[in-house]
Design a binder for these strands. Sequence first.
DNA 1: GACCGATTCAAACAGATGTTTCAATCGAGC
DNA 2: GCTCGATTGAAACATCTGTTTGAATCGGTC
Lengths: 234, 234
Amino acid sequence: MSQNPDPNSPPAEAQDTKDRLIEAGMAVFAERGFADAGLREICAQAGANPAAVNYHFGDKQRFYTEVLATCHQRAASHRPVPRIADDPDRPDVVLGRFVRWFLELLLVSSENDYLGRLMAREMVSPSPSLLEMVRRSLLPIKAVLEEILRALLPPDVDDQTLGLCFASTISQCLFYKHNQPVFQAMERIRATGREDERLQAEFPDRNDLDELAEHITRFALAGLRAAGYETDHR
Amino acid sequence: MSQNPDPNSPPAEAQDTKDRLIEAGMAVFAERGFADAGLREICAQAGANPAAVNYHFGDKQRFYTEVLATCHQRAASHRPVPRIADDPDRPDVVLGRFVRWFLELLLVSSENDYLGRLMAREMVSPSPSLLEMVRRSLLPIKAVLEEILRALLPPDVDDQTLGLCFASTISQCLFYKHNQPVFQAMERIRATGREDERLQAEFPDRNDLDELAEHITRFALAGLRAAGYETDHR
DNA sequence: GACCGATTCAAACAGATGTTTCAATCGAGC
DNA sequence: GCTCGATTGAAACATCTGTTTGAATCGGTC
C-alpha cells in the first residue's frame, strides 16, 4: 500500500505506467463506460499488465475514481466556463456562449479532455462514482447556468420555474450526446438502398455545432421569456 | 426448431412458459437493459429453467428481439398517440397532449406497457436491436410530432429547422427519463445531514407530470415561434 | 557486488455469464 | 398401454470478467 517513502527518488518508470494507465483508462472508459470497459483492453492500450491496475490503484473501482479525478483537474484548466460576470449586460449573449461551450464539452473529442464524455456516460449508466461526479462537476455547471438564467428571467422567479428552465435548456444540449446511437441508426436507415455518399458523416463538424448552438440558444431564449412571463402573471 | 405442426393442439403449458418468459423479460430488460439483464434472473422470475430460453428462442439476442416485438404490438393498442387530425384547428393543444402522452410513456410504470422504458434504455445503451426499434417505434413517433410541429411553424420551413425543432421539443421530455440517476444523486446530496422526510419521493407523481407537461409545452411553443420567425426572415 | 524494496509479468483463480447436453417428464394418438 | 415428439430440468461447459499469486526484474544503497 505505502509507496516509496522518499519523495526525492521517484522510480521513474513506475510513475510512467501509472500515468499511461490513467491515460488509457480515460479513453476506454469514455468510449465504453465503466462496466463495459475491460481492464485487459485498457492495459493493452497502456502497454501494461492487468495486475498493474490492482498494484497501483487497488481495484477497478478505485482506478476509475482516480481517472475521473484526473479528468476533472485537467478539464478545469481547459475551456473555462462562460459566466454571467464576463458580460453582465448581455445575458442572452452569455447564454449563447454557455450553450456553445457545453455542446463542445460533450461532443468535440479532444485528446486531453475526456470529462464531457465521461460525464455523459455516467449520467445515463451510473457507476458508484456518480454521486461524486455530480457533486464535483455537474452541480457547479448547474449553478453557472442557473446564474445566467436568473439574469434572463424576472427577478422574482421561484426555484421550481428556474429548475424547469434549467432542464429545458440543458436537455437540448444533452440530447445530441445521449442519442448519438439513434442518429447513426436513423442515418443507416435513410441510406438504405443508395450505397453512395459517405455513409456516416462524422456528426458534429464545426458548422453543425455553430448552427446547433445558435438554434438552441434562440429556442431557449424564447422559451425563457414565455416561462418567465407566465410566472409573473400566475 | 419446428414447433408443433398441428395448430389445433397447443401443448398448453408450453405456450405458458414462453409467455411467462416474455413477460419476465420485459420487466427485467426494461429495468437493467439488454446487456446487464441476466437470463438466470429472468428465468427465476418466470419460474423457468435457463435452458428454456434457448429452447424457445434460440439465444438471448433473439429472445430480446421477441420481447421488443411483443412490447411493440401491445403498446400500439394502449394509449394511442395524439395526432394533429384529432384537433386540426388547435395544433398548440395537440402539442400539449403529445408532450403529456410521451412523458407518460417514458415515466409512468405500467404492468402491461414497457415500451417506453425499453425504448429509453435502447437509445442510450444500444443493442443489436436498436435499428429495428428505431424503424418500428421511434420513426413513427418522430413523424407524428413533426406533423404537429409543421402546423405550428411557417408553411415553408426547411427540413433542417424542422429537425432542430423536433430535437428541441422531444429532448425536454427524454431528459427526465435519461437523467433519473442524476436526479436521485442530487436528491441524496441535498438531503445530506437532515435524515428526516422521505429520502426519495417517487419522482413523477400525477401533479409533477402535469406541471412538467405544461412547462415543456409552453417553453416549446415559444421556441417554435422564434425558430419559425427567424427562418422566415433569414 | 550483494542486498532490498519497489515494480513487472505470466499464470492461475474465483465468479458470473450465455449456452449445451442429455436424461427425465409430459401429453396426445395409434 | 405404449410410443413418440415436444418440453422441462439439473448439471456441466466454455468463455469472459476482475483479482490474486509468486517468481522474475529493475534500480539504487551500503
